[in-house]
Design a protein around this nucleic acid. Structure first.
Lengths: 248, 248
DNA sequence: GGCGGAAATTGACCGCCGTCAAATGCGCAG
DNA sequence: CTGCGCATTTGACGGCGGTCAATTTCCGCC
């Protein structure tokens, strides 16, 4: 039944390719390739706390976050947790398993009720191996990531805790406005602390110190900044890329 | 004169493609592609202290270390230095400028008298864009690098200074021997300290502490380890990958 | 063999951050 | 409205690692 080639799965799955074009590595895809990549893709609704996979699992899928937040992390022998990244809507994760012998190199947990598109890893692998545009897009994305990680290492080595928080806040504002700005912290402070490589208690105190030093106002998860440049002067002194930061 | 196809430039340049096959990203290259990649390549002898390029320079070349050591680093506004990596013979650097708009994202300094092969960045770019094997090899290399960086971030956040040194020593021994082992530190301790993200004074004290805790013997830059597993137990407790370490 | 300079160690001190514990605030459910 | 549970803050304290300074060691060179 050749007419069935255009079957109804796409409708069933709520148009999986919707939004893929917004992901950097899919930006230059032809509609045809995009369709092949999203074959069999399904959107899953996942509650906060759900572990999507753990470090060492065999990887058949990778994921696109449509809504919510996801934490990538690893656990040490003595029970500590290393937070690798915390990702918002629009980001991919798990795709690196392609180059890790099909094994996830970290664990992933939903930290804010999420809608996640599950995509086929073999399909992505095939696309990368056969379409040079895909390979190049992936290379570009990897390279950016590599740069981000270099900055992260630098930040953790050279910046104080208050500076790290300030730097994080600055990266939430990608506008170049000088005037007063209001920011909402994207997720809870405990998580934010771990994302920045510090303890929640340290975060709390560091934020208070940052407030004193730069004259910002804080109310629960809302931060008001009068002068971005004051904050930048304070936070970016110990960083090689100055302001605006090269990271993210 | 068709016989001249095999011309003498290869000899002139001391056979630039010699050794390229040992670099992961060139392993699957055809001789033909390898020849194109090494067109115009020259071997340069560089003394310790020589700055090869600095952060922000326009990039026309990338480099292969044949002998010696090279430090990659960035400098902060207030004068601190962030060491990104310290590379031995056999490693490439500067190639990432392809994805950074042709600009080096860090500075490079020779720290041990070196012989360095200077290669053409446009040639590499062309190879990656036209040969899918090259693109895939590059992706694999990037992915490994990304993994290494994740581990680096984890190490710096979760390990104590003595543990970081122990971990570094373990990664110098890739044998799985259990018995006594002698290691020579690959470069001077000041540099090693910065590579590990700590001050030279801290390194000195941390090494002494590591010696006490694990019963190793130290004489100048020589380290004797009786029991690798004792060292591994001590160093890898705070690491998610256990022993042997996933990094490097 | 002796000299000079850099590397490495050691000492003293201190501030930052981690840890443990208690208190406070906040949101949600009954 | 009340109570419970969790996030957040605050307090107290200690240790690790950074900084400054003084030696001591190492190593190449004369």
């Amino acid at each position: 039944m050749p007419a069935m080639t255009c079957q109804n799965t796409a409708m069933n799955q709520n148009a999986p390719e919707q939004g893929l074009l917004a992901v950097p590595i899919f930006q230059s895809c032809t509609p045809d390739l995009l369709a092949r990549i999203s074959t069999g893709a399904v959107t899953e609704r996942q509650p906060k706390g759900k572990i999507l996979f753990i470090n060492g699992d065999n990887a058949a899928s990778y994921f696109l976050i449509r809504k919510g937040w996801v934490k990538l992390f690893r656990e040490t022998l003595d029970g500590d947790q290393a937070v690798i990244d915390i990702l918002p809507a629009g980001h991919l994760f798990g795709e690196t398993a392609i180059f890790e012998n099909g094994i996830y190199a970290y664990s992933a947990e939903v930290i804010e009720d999420a809608e996640i598109l599950r995509l086929s890893l073999p399909a992505l692998r095939h696309a990368i191996e056969t379409d040079s545009h895909m390979a190049l897009a992936m290379l570009k994305s990897m390279s950016h990531h590599r740069r981000d990680q270099e900055m992260e290492i630098e930040h953790r080595t050279l910046q104080s805790a208050p500076q790290r928080i300030g730097c994080f806040l600055l990266r939430l504002i990608d506008q170049r406005k000088k005037g007063p700005i209001t920011i909402n912290l994207p997720y809870d402070k405990t998580l934010l602390a771990l994302r920045l490589g510090m303890q929640p208690e340290t975060f709390s105190r560091a934020l208070a110190r940052l407030k004193d030093e730069t004259g910002m106002r804080i109310k629960a998860s809302t931060v008001e900044i009068d002068s971005v440049s004051t904050l930048a002067d304070y936070a970016c002194a110990a960083c090689s890329s100055g302001f605006p930061c090269a990271d993210k």
